[in-house]
Design a protein around this nucleic acid. Sequence first.
DNA 1: TTGAAAGCGCTAACAC
DNA 2: GTGTTAGCGCTTTCAA
Lengths: 314, 314
Amino acid sequence: MATVSRALNRTGYVKSGTLEKIEQAMDELGYIPNRQARAMVGGITRTIGVLVPDMDNSLFMRIVQAINDAAYRHDYTLLVMDSRGEAQREAKIVRAMQELRVDGLILFGTPGTAQVIESMKPQGPVIILDRLVTHFAGPQISVNHYDGAKTAVRLLLKHCRYPPAFIAGPAHIWSAQQRLNGYCDALRDQDLPAVLERIEYADFTYQAGYSAMNKLFSRVPDLDGVFAVNDLAALGAMKAIYERGLGCPDDVHLVGFDDIHAARYVTPSLTTIRQPMESIGRTAVDILRKQIRGETVETTPIVLPGELIFRESC
Amino acid sequence: MATVSRALNRTGYVKSGTLEKIEQAMDELGYIPNRQARAMVGGITRTIGVLVPDMDNSLFMRIVQAINDAAYRHDYTLLVMDSRGEAQREAKIVRAMQELRVDGLILFGTPGTAQVIESMKPQGPVIILDRLVTHFAGPQISVNHYDGAKTAVRLLLKHCRYPPAFIAGPAHIWSAQQRLNGYCDALRDQDLPAVLERIEYADFTYQAGYSAMNKLFSRVPDLDGVFAVNDLAALGAMKAIYERGLGCPDDVHLVGFDDIHAARYVTPSLTTIRQPMESIGRTAVDILRKQIRGETVETTPIVLPGELIFRESC
DNA sequence: TTGAAAGCGCTAACAC
DNA sequence: GTGTTAGCGCTTTCAA
């Protein structure tokens, strides 16, 4: 038994003849080693848990894809689950992953995440992505929402005669808040006030972007530029613009945030701030691996720059 | 030890006082049962492996979401990995999942899937989704590609003066082949021949749809209707249509397949055949659970009807 | 109603 | 180079 184990793990000496015999036997018997048994004695499972609030969100999944690729490179298997944004479900899934003894956990921040982490014992390393959580001591990674928003608004200011409007996100979500700050400060830098009239709140959906845009139209007469908190909302806004018989960018300049696929597919294609999804995912796995190895890591949030993607809408 | 085990699993008798003491101790110690150890003796892991060729494909992920929800309801945890469409990677991931002793496996069919399954020993149940595989003896689930295509083409025939063109998928992919057959037969039903001139091959991408449409334009003078093998290709086609200064549906009627989110977001919104993603996912888990319980299941492919979604493009 | 003991498949330490 | 043994955390007899 021990010799087989040594052969399998290529640890210690095994005579080449014996090795062959072992390999042949494994083949004949269709033997597949049991990783759980391995994990029982070794302590590590080579699995990483990933918890997403919405598996049908291209932004999230492209980050997960990057995680997937990095994990694959390092021979890790991913447990991915969708909490559907429900805090209770999030808690149950985290628990299940702990019972499965994942080596590390990657969570996308939701309003409930802080509490979920609070209430669970710190079994192994945890990393939070995208929407950061204030009362969390571990590593966190996100795009620089603030700078990205500023860049977007500066671009609009270059093209527009009037101060751009903002379709904002829910006030209690950290990333939305950051983008709002960026919007306000970019205006302030030009000695323009951020007036309430030009800000309309929406959640991150297409529908909400559509109605927000309509509300802005009915309220603001001199409207020739809009920054939307994310691409989905921007797409909704675009719909509203075209329904009024107006055009993009001729009548209204439009900039989104995220760079989801649809941004490239629509006509006119959407100018946006691209999140560095690939490096968010890769960095997450890198840090996790360091933590798994027992090294200590920086716990101040890592903030990666977004990239302005020029397309047709602005 | 045995008593604790009984308490945890609520199997056998435990005095209520003892139960309380156990629960209190678990709390104090932050005890989290080890599912792997459990699985070692029990044989089942309550995990399901899911292998996707592209995690950033809304069609796939909405099916996975349905799988996720069904799995959650029945207390299963999902191992989801993205093979990036590479056969070799697919094989390695399946292997890893077998080593982890998943109770069942759900695969999205790719050109390489048949061989991967062939070469791996049948450890536990396997289900194949979406693109069926001919030499596979287990259960398979997909939309009725053929009927869906027929429905789409019939709709186009109603609105168009000329026989609609078809932006086809790769010939070696089963689902694409089915949709092509549907296209041809729908024409034939109206005593119209399916002429090669009106068929342009593309893969399932936006880019390919775009160039395919341009080729059709340059080849077919009387073009007022197009059926695209999937929504992404349809969106690319739409771009080409608008670039020519034409409109949808005024000049060219357009129908897609799948009903990805973007279909609703674009202007004009895309008429399409919706895949029953929710029921594909739910059914997959239902069948898997049956198989895990040891029941025998139907192995003739389950073919679910698609749904025509009327929007603006046709 | 509880405890003792065996064993799930593996690795690591040690002896041979 | 290879075999023996103990033990990872649990469930399941079987006895008490």
